[in-house]
Design a protein around this nucleic acid. Sequence first.
DNA 1: CGTATATCATTGAAAAAGTCAACAGTATTG
DNA 2: CAATACTGTTGACTTTTTCAATGATATACG
Lengths: 162, 162
Amino acid sequence: MSAHTTTRGNDADLAENTNGAQRLHTTELANEIEFLTARARSLGSGRANNMLAELDLKVRSYSVLSLACSGQNPSQRELADFLSLDPSQIVALVDQLEHRGAVARETDPRDRRSKVIVATTAGRSLYKRAEAIIRRSEDQSLSTLSLQERETLRDLLKRIAF
Amino acid sequence: MSAHTTTRGNDADLAENTNGAQRLHTTELANEIEFLTARARSLGSGRANNMLAELDLKVRSYSVLSLACSGQNPSQRELADFLSLDPSQIVALVDQLEHRGAVARETDPRDRRSKVIVATTAGRSLYKRAEAIIRRSEDQSLSTLSLQERETLRDLLKRIAF
DNA sequence: CGTATATCATTGAAAAAGTCAACAGTATTG
DNA sequence: CAATACTGTTGACTTTTTCAATGATATACG
């Protein structure tokens, strides 16, 4: 078996193989920023979605609600651009939030085509609770980083995200 | 209109509003690491997918191919864990790569249930070309960061991704 | 040994998300 | 006024995700 290329690893690996694919951490892929970003996001949004479930929200709807509470009065088109979503997906998300009374559509008097999304009182209250959950979720996801490192990460991400 | 809360912004905003939702950059959401990570990944993998299209690959299939070329002989279960995908998705991805002759399934003699994914010669050649594309894509996506900043980002992401 | 339990790859179905074209109403341009 | 472009909306379609069930194999334990 020593020179047989189809077997994975050798006997020394067996102890390490018990808990999974730690072996792959040394891979080229595991060092690509692209991949690490995708994985970080997958873990992070997975946790956030789980925790937001108690409010019957997902990160998507939370994001829309957050922007509706921002005081910036975003239009649906702006939400679509900012969240990198198709306008039709925004329609569905706003529909849900509107049906549960968290946000309202107000047609912009300056441009009667566009509709500004604003949060209701109930919506702002919901957002407060959701925000606390998101903060806890983020805190858990970033538990291996110091506060200063989190700031560094935030700034670096901001520069590549905008 | 001055005190009308439903109008968005004031006249001073109009010049800035021409190109989109830059206004939202000051939002709370725009400062959440979670959100920035999602947006960075969306932009990055979008670009990578576009550029990989010339090889008829996506980031998903590229990731599997990359791990198949890693010399670590991963099983499908390990691929699923590492890529945060459902085992059934791995089946589909490996099927595609196998049909085009880039990888092969080899049943692990140590555990005849599991199948080790290894790259063929053609697969390694394909990976070389894909890797070059990914490198260019990543370079473009991170163009606003210095080399040292990229290293910092990579290390921070690694710590939260594993 | 034999029996129960667990794990792997696979299939198929269902739900969710993403993509795209068309439409009515409105704005902008010339 | 006419032509063009943009907004939200709908509906169809594809892709991705999620989940339960299955056969083959491995492991644990009496």
